[in-house]
């Protein structure tokens, strides 16, 4: 056996893919060729190192909010949630453009709520450093504006119920934000915050549809 042939068969040899006769020839060659023996040992080390590599690595940050903001809606499936997402995704995209302008952000986040459907003062504030939080806030603001414009078409008892539930969700959002500011790397808190935001958008979406019915 030549060294060249040894190298051609080496991979199959290490993977156990040779016949007993071929294996014997490989072993005989290694017994008399120190260079090929060394090459085989080095290759075995490469394969062992590859096997030892971790197959899972946690990303340094939570990528889900960015992914969620980009998910296209599926038309006509999953009941009201798909309606929510089909409505929210373009709003979030619009909001993402808006937040690139600092002055615009400052204006939008600091402006007082218009009269009408009352929202708690905690709602417009966003967690510093979390773009998704700002996008949720802006998307909710857009829906709130639509809702205020159609408010007179809702029964007073419905408005009262909406306000009560929105206040509860806003309180949950505020609580999650406070906790997240103290512990920004906590993925559970982020999940809680995004969940509360989605609940709010879902509720606002349902309410705005009521104003049109």
């Amino acid at each position: 056996m030549t060294c060249e042939q040894f190298d051609q068969w080496l991979d199959a040899y290490l993977e156990g893919g040779l016949t007993p006769t071929q294996q014997g020839a490989m072993q005989a060659h290694m017994a008399e060729c120190t260079l090929c023996h060394a090459h085989a040992s080095e290759m075995q080390a490469v394969l062992s190192a590859a096997t030892a590599l971790p197959r899972s690595i946690v990303p340094p940050r939570d990528l889900w909010p960015d992914i969620a903001a980009r998910l296209p809606a599926r038309r006509g499936v999953h009941g009201s949630r798909s309606v929510l997402w089909s409505r929210w995704v373009p709003l979030a995209a619009a909001a993402a453009v808006l937040i690139t302008v600092t002055a615009t952000i400052t204006y939008r986040l600091s402006r007082p709520a218009a009269p009408g459907l009352v929202l708690t003062a905690t709602a417009p504030r966003a967690v510093a450093g979390f773009a998704a939080d700002r996008e949720y806030v802006l998307a909710a603001e857009d829906l709130e504006r639509v809702l205020r414009e159609g408010r007179e078409r809702l029964a007073p008892s419905t408005v009262e119920l909406l306000e009560r539930n929105l206040a509860l969700i806003d309180a949950a959002i505020a609580e999650a934000r406070t906790a997240l500011e103290a512990d920004p790397a906590n993925a559970d808190l982020r999940a809680l915050l995004w969940g509360a935001h989605r609940q709010k958008l879902d509720l606002l979406d349902r309410a705005t549809r009521l104003t049109r019915s």
Partner: peptide, 15 residues
């Protein structure tokens, strides 16, 4: 079309 379910899949495979 359930994004919450898709998030479960994301969390299970993102690593």
């Amino acid at each position: 079309g359930d994004p919450d379910a898709f998030r479960v899949l994301y969390e299970g495979h993102v690593g």
